[in-house]
Amino acid sequence: MDNPADITLDRMRSRHRELASSIVRTPSVELVSSSVKRVLDQANIYLKLEAFQHTGTFKARGALSVAHSIPREELQRGLTGASAGNHAIAVAWAARQMGVPAKVVMQSTANPFRVERARSEGAEVVLADGGPATFAEAERLMREEGFTFVHPFEGAETTLGTAGVGLELMADVIDLDAVVVAVGGGGLISGVAAVVKQLNPRCLVYGVEPKGANAVSRGLAANGPVTIEKSDTIADSLAPPMSLPFSLSLIARYVDDVVTISDDDLCAALVIMQEQARLAVEPAAAAAMAGALGPLRQRLSGKRMAMIVCGSNIDAASYAKLHERGYPLVPTLFS
């Protein structure tokens, strides 16, 4: 197993330089919304806009980082991955950047918009039923057809890639008191937190996870990985069927707390992101806002803080339905 102690600043910086010519250096912008600032006692709030990354999410960083670590002879046989959507798109994109084929496995319930995005990046898409089945099919492709599996969140190479989000944020915004990050399997928060805590140990790092897909919270409580039989959340990109040792160990080491939020909170935060930040994002990218205005409110009030806006892969019709659901719920986060 990869060693969490190997995720050093030197290695993270080196990987960031290696990927720099292919990855968008996404902006960090101040949120000037008087409504959000009022609720958070005039906190200074910054948004790291990974929704503007290649493929529409931070996932491009991790997938390309893994691809760069694979020996060329093995890489030429192609890449595969298991995903509800965003990771599959990123693996397809990374394979295209490296000039190799991709055959990705997506859940049969995946949003058709995301399936088409993966295909548009040049991948062959295989549909499978449920989270465990997608991983099983990806393992078959690796075993029988020679593809290299790119895990959606687990492993040092993924963390080294996502660490670029933290490196850029900490360079752009000095003297942060706290950073808030959405949590699925932990690939994003492991990289961000490793950077933040090694550069500024006093800066707090908080994770925000859906109540219906809380594999990381349960894993932390159990002091080890857990598997969830069934995830139940609108934030499908935050709903892996398990937590795993490497990412969980980094979260335990560097993250100050992981809180959970409801789907109603996510929908309300989706509206707040659109009306107050002028950003139309997927539910996962509203998780940090939902956490900040909900369970983390007292801890963030008056602080100099940042939220990672992790992705924007959602079709207009789905977005409209979630926005409609969330609109009457906004007062619950603003009260």
Rank of each mutant, 00 (worst) to 15 (best):
M1G: 00
M1A: 02
M1Q: 00
D2L: 07
A5W: 03
I7L: 15
D10V: 07
M12W: 06
R13S: 14
R13E: 15
R15T: 09
R15N: 05
A20I: 05
V24H: 08
V24L: 09
V24T: 10
T26D: 06
P27T: 04
E30S: 13
E30L: 05
V32I: 05
V39H: 02
L40C: 07
D41L: 11
Y46C: 09
L47W: 03
E50L: 14
E50T: 11
G56Y: 06
A63C: 03
L64Q: 07
S65A: 07
S69R: 06
I70V: 14
P71V: 08
P71M: 05
E73I: 04
L75K: 06
Q76N: 05
R77N: 14
L79G: 07
G81E: 06
A88R: 12
A90G: 05
A90M: 04
A90K: 10
W93N: 11
A102T: 02
V105K: 12
M106C: 01
F113N: 12
R117T: 03
R117A: 14
S120I: 00
V125W: 04
L127F: 09
A128L: 11
G130R: 13
G130L: 14
G130K: 14
A138P: 14
A138R: 05
E139S: 13
R140E: 00
L141D: 14
M142Q: 15
M142L: 04
E144H: 15
V150M: 10
V150A: 09
H151A: 08
P152T: 07
A156P: 01
G161D: 06
V165Q: 01
G166L: 01
E168I: 04
L169G: 02
L169P: 14
A178T: 11
V179T: 01
V179E: 01
V181D: 03
V183N: 11
G185L: 12
I189C: 02
I189W: 02
G191M: 09
V192T: 01
V192N: 01
K197W: 09
K197Q: 13
Q198H: 12
L199S: 02
N200Q: 11
P201F: 03
P210I: 14
R218F: 00
L220R: 13
A221E: 11
A221M: 10
A221I: 08
G224F: 04
P225Q: 02
P225S: 05
V226S: 07
S231L: 05
D232I: 13
T233V: 01
T233Q: 10
D236L: 10
L238C: 12
L238M: 13
M242C: 13
S243V: 15
S247Q: 02
L248D: 08
S249D: 00
L250K: 05
V259I: 13
S262R: 07
V271S: 10
I272E: 13
A277D: 04
L279D: 10
A285S: 15
A286Y: 08
M289E: 04
M289D: 08
L293S: 12
G294Q: 10
L296F: 02
R297Y: 06
L300F: 13
G302T: 10
G302Y: 08
K303I: 09
R304E: 12
L322F: 03
E324Y: 00
Y327D: 11
Y327I: 11
L329W: 11
T332V: 12
